[in-house]
Design a protein around this nucleic acid. Structure first.
Lengths: 223, 223
DNA sequence: ATAAATTTTAAACGGTTGTTTGAAATTTTG
DNA sequence: CAAAATTTCAAACAACCGTTTAAAATTTAT
């Protein structure tokens, strides 16, 4: 974070602060102080804070998406299984750590923040730029899980994304709470290792959409 | 939201805005405008914004926690199973909708925001006030899933919380994105119905901690 | 009804936000 | 080397933030 040019120094400082504190809670003054550059240089190089947010994410996606596509193509050519599709996300994710020590985690957290903070422009950017890959993901999972409706698959994929993103975003908090007496340091690798079998089980579960268990009555009855 | 007293009007407006926008991104002026009360009345009735955040959450927890405890006691007295423990959370959650049409969702979202926004005071408050119930939850799950270590259980419980919270927080976003052509309106009831079998599968999964699948090598190899 | 306590109100406080400006410094080009 | 284009910089902008103040309005108690 030293002899790089101004634009890169801003991107690197913004990456860390956006992931740690969120987009809205991070000020341009925090970023420029951390990056040791002048405040006005953000607007000079990126135009606005909103454009900076987009640029930080674009920097990840340009690395992540091509590798993901390559891995997905490999899965499609070989044998399509839920586990194989999930594993296809691992290499592109860890490739991001070449940008910075924690970039894989920062990327995951920022994707999550793009959902929960109202950053509609981010979603539009991703869909416009990488809609094809997103479609391919759905296609492959549909193929691996032919018994699931598109709606059911949609739900489960977002539960899976949530499981990963939530723990990545709160790894700081999780270390503080009472239960964490039994909680070793949460490296990105550890989290991924733990979440893969968890989401695989949730995605492939055969009992969820059968009407004989967890019926509407049971849940509706507690209203 | 009309003839209630000032304190309640503030709590109701804050509930909605905190859930929609987060704690940091919601200003006291937004809250008091929405509630049609004077700006200074927040500090008069609650002392500070931080105390208001705590008061909004306390209003939920005072309803949620006793009912949860009652349900957990029922499970403990009868037959302890993962599914039964999960179902124990449903009645207290939907009881919150007596406070407001969307309060169950707002509560869930705010619990999530308490993790990802750095609101350490919230976690301390919850642990201090309801630590016993939290301990009981862990105890029951340990009983239902005796093969899991405490660490493994801890991970899976937070993945489960994440799956629920993420989808609740982003239900607005999820309706916008491309995949959502196949996406009906996401009521709180629908989300809970969908998430219960998902997390049940993830929690009870027997393959996750076995070393013959998804090994460290597979994941570490992609670093 | 009068006094006391509580609540509401408009205004202002110092501090921070994203953005703009125009001059100074630097780098690139001819 | 000089001219031109690019980048950096300190300073200021209006808008917004949480909080405080003290007077006005209202409710409660005597």
């Amino acid at each position: 974070m030293s002899k790089a040019n101004t634009k890169t120094k801003i991107l690197e400082a913004a990456e860390q602060l956006f992931a740690e504190q969120g987009f809205n809670s991070t000020s341009l003054r925090q970023i420029t102080n951390e990056a040791n550059v002048n405040l006005a240089s953000v607007n000079y190089h990126f135009g606005s804070k909103k454009s900076l947010i987009q640029a930080v994410l674009a920097r990840y996606l340009e690395i992540f998406m091509p590798i993901l596509k390559r891995e997905l193509d490999k899965v499609a050519a070989d044998k399509v299984s839920t586990e194989a599709i999930i594993q296809a996300f691992v290499p592109p994710l860890f490739e991001l750590n070449k940008l910075g020590k924690q970039s894989a985690k920062h990327f995951t957290v920022m994707i999550g923040r793009g959902y929960s903070e109202t950053q509609g422009h981010l979603r539009k950017y991703i869909v416009n730029e990488y809609g094809e890959v997103l479609t391919q993901i759905i296609e492959l999972f549909s193929q691996a899980l032919p018994k699931l409706t598109k709606q059911e698959l949609f739900w489960r994929l977002h539960f899976s994304l949530g499981a990963l993103v939530f723990v990545m975003s709160s790894s700081g908090a999780l270390e503080e709470i009472a239960m964490s007496d039994f909680f070793e340091q949460a490296s990105t690798k550890t989290i991924v290792q733990k979440v893969v079998p968890y989401v695989a089980a949730g995605l492939t579960n055969q009992q969820g959409f059968l009407p004989n268990q967890f019926t509407t009555d049971q849940i509706g009855g507690s209203l």
